[in-house]
Write a protein that binds this DNA or RNA. Structure first.
Lengths: 224, 224
DNA sequence: GGATCTTGTGACAGGACTGCGACACGGCGA
DNA sequence: TCGCCGTGTCGCAGTCCTGTCACAAGATCC
């Protein structure tokens, strides 16, 4: 039985979704604001968090960040608009997925299953992709069994990209996430970072199998 | 031009809303009960359904469920004010949004646009149309199971067109949305873009099954 | 059937994007 | 202080993309 923590301030939406998710076989606990959510989360036993962005008090992004500080529990954000800004901010705050409201219970159920499936590959803090192993706790990286030594920037880049395999990250997003604080610098910086990372983890950097270029858009970590 | 199917039994309300929505630039077809709605829907070419809950015969929820069995077309429910039960039931039946009556035309128009923007068959970030799959997160496109490599412009074009299948996009609209910044260039540019896209995703570019030409108006993505 | 307008298609040159090497700067430990 | 390592920046070359033109093919209207 999956235990979901649903954080939503609108009582009717909360009730409705709780009901619907229970029908899909999940155990659903609820919280109506960020404080309550963090408290409940701290008590443990939560498998997945479904988090509304708009909350009274601490907003969803902040709740997301605080949860991420302590745990890798999957988080699905609920955003009201089809707004890309929300989505990007959410993913940057560490969310695993996002769903736009109003949401169909079946869709949400599918997302929950998808996100749980994905997080299984992250058991014990180790991400495995082919011959590449990333230990997100000890920060050790091995390729085909051989330990690789990455610099801090390379490591952050790899961790960021591999957090959501398959997702395309634009250079701007990577600058913000990896290099932090609105970097105005040349986005060639990202190219260089990628090149350096590839030279260490790819068997053949000219034919990368982990970090792919998506011409015109950015980079993505190849989905297994 | 967006085609809306308005299902409402009260003739006075129906006429009024039809008129108002037409003023907002939508093409509005009407049905006065569930039977008629399903029949009309089956004939195709409906972009969005506006569905009263209280209908003679088959009620709105049931109509909603039956439409959901065959299509992901967005559905906006009209419910009597303050009836929260309706809202939850509606969302569970697969509605995308709900509006309480009496409704202001501008509000309804805004909802229609919002619901269309949020897009139709975008579950799990994957749009599926026949043999064509578009993953809007990883930006991967496959045709009949084979991965296709699209250039940035081709991809933006495909994403734009497929966002609202069935809707006709004029060359000017495509120039704005795909090529961005008030492009003054030849609109033959769009033709060329479409040609290049077709050559990659269509089985027989001479008989396109995804990107259709609407002579004199522009292009549209065929509805599944 | 012919005139006219619209769309499809190939070719091509200019330009954008990316990979990559080189280099300088600054922090840090020896 | 020196040397090393990590990092940001620059420039260049190759590749791929794209805007434009010209013309063919097809649709539409009279």
């Amino acid at each position: 039985m999956v235990v979901a923590l649903l954080v939503e301030d609108d009582e009717f939406v909360r009730r409705g979704m709780q009901l619907a998710l229970k029908r899909h076989g999940h155990d659903v606990e609820t919280a109506e604001d960020g404080e309550a959510a963090l408290t409940r989360f701290g008590e443990g036993d939560v498998d997945v968090v479904i988090l509304d962005v708009m909350l009274p008090g601490i907003d969803g992004f902040e709740v997301c960040r605080r949860i991420r500080e302590r745990a890798q529990t999957p988080i699905i954000m609920l955003t009201a608009r089809g707004d890309d800004f929300d989505i990007i901010t959410g993913l940057e705050a560490g969310a695993d997925d996002y769903v736009t409201k109003p949401v169909q219970p079946t869709v949400l159920d599918a997302r929950i299953r998808a996100v749980l499936r994905r997080s299984v590959s992250d058991v014990d803090g180790v991400r495995v992709h082919g011959g590449l192993q990333i230990d997100t706790v000890s920060l050790a990286v091995t390729v085909d069994g051989h330990a690789v030594s990455l610099t801090p920037t390379e490591l952050r880049l790899l961790l960021t990209l591999s957090r959501v395999p398959g997702r395309v990250f634009s250079r701007e997003q990577l600058l913000e996430e990896v290099w932090e604080q609105g970097y105005l610098g040349d986005s060639r910086l990202v190219d260089n970072g990628v090149m350096r990372l590839r030279s260490k983890i790819e068997r053949d950097p000219a034919q990368p199998e982990y970090v792919e270029t998506v011409r015109g858009f950015g980079y993505r970590f190849r989905r297994a």
